[in-house]
Design a protein around this nucleic acid. Structure first.
Lengths: 338, 338
DNA sequence: ATAGATTCCCAAAACGTTTTGGAAAGTCAA
DNA sequence: TTGACTTTCCAAAACGTTTTGGGAATCTAT
């Protein structure tokens, strides 16, 4: 593949120097308006696009942002994640920043990926998803001084830029609501507690229970998947004096729990209350439609991109910390206690 | 950010030339084993990673593969898509190929994105997803001679490398099976017919109906989403003499249809048969669990990557055309006709 | 001892862009 | 006419790597 077009070609065919062509295209003031137009027209004609490698080398930045793709189940149900990524990427593209996706199987491999990424200068900035309370990735990025934004907080949120939903408030509100409906044994189906979102949601649940003075705090920790939710619901319901409400860390878990309840002959919304989090597309179509909650912002991905751009522009990370409110989406899987 | 490490630094600190250091690290035979080791040790010590921009510039390839991310609903339900992408990316990483994600809102924008991508040499190869029967993207890529693999066929599949499930056979088999269960009015809930997968699945359904000699061919075309499936089921069932079976282009549509049927007081599996395609994680947890089908290969993403790598290695595209069998996943939303 | 191989290394060019530090020509004021 | 500014352009360096085309030792065979 020969280079179809380069500044050299353009310069030669226009009888100008490479410098002038380059500066004309970049809109510098020191090239005459008429030549600038001439150059632009010629560039357009041959579909000139600067070679990205050459530009990166000279400019010392690659115009790319990386996000590692956790293959383990996690904070995001894939639909949510992909939508967020799409929105984020779209905003980044407006700044001509590419988004690269780095898959990682395990935690060790993830760190190795980060190191290669940073040492090889393949990205100018990084997005960290599926944050853990104690997150090595965040530590590494801080150490290297690479701009980054996390989706989800860590145990030390004041030390970096982040965007996150207020899962704690969301779960507190939901548990309070259940209590006000007469529920006295409100169980929590939790996700692994090293994941920040899972920890915070459990904290919210705990806070509401403490507030209400309930000492019975049934809970079960499982993988944030349908299967995990299924397993948890089975376990929680098999005790005598089982809970009357199940507050699930994610909708995926709630969907699994729903199917377990059904197998046990329990109808959610009538025999037992069930609430999830995420408002997945399919949540409106379960039977009965799932009560859930969601981040009350339509454009988390875009905001994330915005913060990253600000960070690349040198804004201080402490000005870039967003906690988005969580809105309850009541449907029919919850009702008063019997 | 100063360059932490470069061949120059290494060379100076080792008292060698840049050339020798470079060749030592690349394992050339013309550097003495002892110096090679010395260099390797030093490189390891400072975490040397070649600057990717410089390397790309010189080598005239960027070690990156691009995939555009369709934001409209399409061939993939997001979970499937993300998993495929993760597997693909993982295999690509083994060849140190990065995967870039380019979001695109509409079709026009998609073509613009492709052009910028190709003119700016930002990727060595491209993955095309959500193929249409007549796909401009494929035409452009062919014209430019860029290696690419499509996920899904086009109207002229012999002209490019692709991987695809045999949706036609899958839907033929499913419709046959329904016919053998006594169903006589088997409706199809289709996705827009410019999408290849949607076209082929409908063809399979049609073939089985023709085979069985059914002249009644109720169908409705909708968006491949839960809402689309809901709308389609409502429309199809409101006629007198409604179908006794619904064959849905995707599981998302089937889930929407399931909820519509429920609202109409129909129980899938008893009053009406319902079959989807994709075997989404949540399909096993619907009520009743959804009968569906899936591509009978655990690693489509990996195979896709493999084909792309072969294509980058110069393999002919005609040797790289894979149609994967589709396996029926019967659950409980279908049964004999009443 | 000497021609020819072999081994190990290196200087310099090249990739295509951006940026630095002017140079040439034109304009203006005196 | 001259000096100071402006305007418009450009040569050359730089970014960090890979690759070309040898060069200097050392070894081998006569």
């Amino acid at each position: 593949m020969l280079p179809v077009s380069s500044l050299k070609h353009l310069a030669q065919s226009l009888g100008l120097s490479i410098t002038t062509v380059s500066r004309a295209l970049d809109g510098y003031a020191d090239v005459a308006p008429t030549t600038r137009e001439r150059v632009r027209a010629a560039a357009q004609a041959i579909h000139y696009q600067p070679n990205s490698a050459a530009r990166s080398l000279r400019r010392r930045k690659v115009e790319a942002v990386a996000v590692t793709l956790p293959t383990e189940p996690g904070q995001f149900s894939p639909p949510t994640f992909l939508n967020m990524l799409a929105a984020c990427s779209q905003r980044l593209a407006e700044e001509s920043l590419d988004l690269m996706l780095l898959p990682t199987a395990g935690r060790a491999e993830e760190m190795e990926t980060y190191r290669r990424l940073l040492d090889g200068r393949r990205a100018d900035a990084v997005i960290v998803v599926r944050t853990r309370l104690d997150d090595e990735r965040v530590a590494l990025l801080r150490e290297r001084g690479i701009p980054f934004v996390t989706h989800g907080r860590t145990a030390r949120p004041n030390e970096h830029a982040f965007i996150d939903g207020d899962g704690e408030a969301g779960f507190r509100d939901a548990a309070r609501h259940l209590a006000s409906l007469g529920h006295r044994r409100i169980a929590h189906i939790a996700a692994p507690q090293d994941l920040t979102f899972a920890y915070l949601r459990r904290e919210g649940w705990l806070a509401a229970l403490a507030e209400a003075g309930f000492s019975d705090r049934p809970e079960y920790i499982a993988q944030p998947t349908e299967a995990g939710g299924y397993e948890a619901a089975r376990w929680l319901m098999q005790h005598d004096n089982p809970p009357t409400a199940l507050l699930c860390a994610t909708d995926s878990m709630a969907i699994g729990a729903l199917s377990a309840l059904k197998e046990m002959g329990l109808k959610a919304g009538r025999d037992i209350a069930l609430i999830g989090h995420d408002n997945l597309p399919s949540a409106a179509f379960t039977d009965p439609p799932l009560s859930t909650m969601e981040i009350a912002a339509p454009d988390v991905g875009r905001q994330l991109a915005e913060m990253l751009i600000a960070r690349l522009g040198g804004r201080d990370s402490r000005e870039l910390q967003t906690i988005l409110p969580v809105r309850q989406v009541p449907r029919t899987t919850h009702g008063p206690a019997n």
